[in-house]
Design a protein around this nucleic acid. Structure first.
Lengths: 200, 200
DNA sequence: CGTTCGACCAAAAGTGAATTTCGTTCCAAA
DNA sequence: TTTGGAACGAAATTCACTTTTGGTCGAACG
């Protein structure tokens, strides 16, 4: 009973560190964030953090994992909804745009190479790159099964969609257009994907 | 008459410098190439180069301009051919792949940010980024006029195609697949663009 | 006069030593 | 068990000095 309460307190402290670190990593990035920054924001000694996490990289990994979990929940909510398949893809794209706007560490790690050491980046990216392609693949697969889509090579097509999506997201988010215009642009782009350019 | 001969000799020397520089820039990149490297390859003194070009950046700009001219010739040949519009797009995509394989300075400048100072990159890129979108736009426009395509927003669609093309080119060129397989993959990707993913 | 190149210049880049910062560990205290 | 000050080694930064680089100048040459 006491052991279980202690375990909860331990996890709660881990959670506090992750939350504090999320804000600071988001503001300053991995490299510019020091362990002292994180410790001070929690009004504790720097070395106390090592009681809960093995090191700086493990904290960052935990931050990214948590953000990825939150995204995964939202994605699964979209994918398991009763919306039609095309709307699901629209919702997913818009969800990503929101994340970019929020300066998510998760999105940052999947987009940039120059913010921290490459080993850590590759390690985390390895974990999540395939997941992005898989999400698109699931949507395309559902469309195929419903007889709505006719996608030949699921892997290649998913990759192409992810590449195009990634290339277009940042310019769109950083443009000066309003939400309404942005949504129209997204719809137009998705129409190209859905219907192609050859007249029907 | 003598003035015209002198002008030709002057231009010939400029051309020699450009050709020599092309090879050295291609091999070592802008940053790692010194003016002495270029001078020595022409068996002349470094300061003689400044009689023909104002500086290193002007030489590089001339190199990129020349490569762009050569590409423009090839592109115009494709665009003005009697091939059907879809074949034109295929030919253009394959032409670009060949250029990447050749380590063209032109392709390099349009893809990377970290090879040289940003001001020079931005300057050159400004000059050619729009051109890439325009090439695609001309093809889409032709398709529209021929009643083959039904592209709503030409600007947005062209941008999307360029972004997707750029994002996919390098992984494809650096993959280990053979020419036959690569051509099949390109065809499949272009089919997505032409026909979309929604069943016809 | 047009062209060439050696000497020179200032700025940028590189080098090595000294110093500071950082992530991490250790251990005593509560 | 948890905390934090002191200490540690490595990485990063700073600093002074040296070398390299892009570029200029002016004399020499054809």
């Amino acid at each position: 009973m006491n052991q279980e309460i202690a375990k909860d307190a331990h996890d709660e402290m881990r959670e506090s560190i992750i939350n504090a670190a999320t804000q600071i990593f988001t503001r300053f990035g991995f490299k510019k964030t020091s362990m002292d920054d994180i410790a001070k924001s929690l009004r504790m000694g720097k070395s106390s953090i090592y009681y809960y996490f093995k090191g700086k990289e493990e904290i960052f990994q935990a931050v990214v994992d948590k953000e990825a979990d939150q995204l995964r929940l939202k994605v699964n909510k979209i994918l398991s909804s009763n919306d039609d398949t095309m709307s699901k893809l629209r919702s997913y794209v818009k969800l990503r745009m929101d994340l970019i706007k929020q300066l998510s560490n998760y999105m940052e790690i999947l987009k940039n190479d120059d913010l921290m050491n490459l080993t850590l980046t590759e390690k985390i990216r390895k974990k999540y790159d395939d997941e992005e392609v898989t999400i698109i693949k699931r949507i395309l697969e559902e469309g195929n099964e419903k007889g709505l889509f006719k996608v030949k090579d699921l892997n290649l097509s998913s990759l192409a969609v992810v590449v195009a999506m990634k290339g277009l997201e940042v310019p769109l988010v950083t443009s000066t257009m309003g939400v309404e215009s942005l949504n129209i642009v997204i719809d137009d782009l998705l129409d190209i994907l859905f219907y192609g350019i050859v007249k029907r």
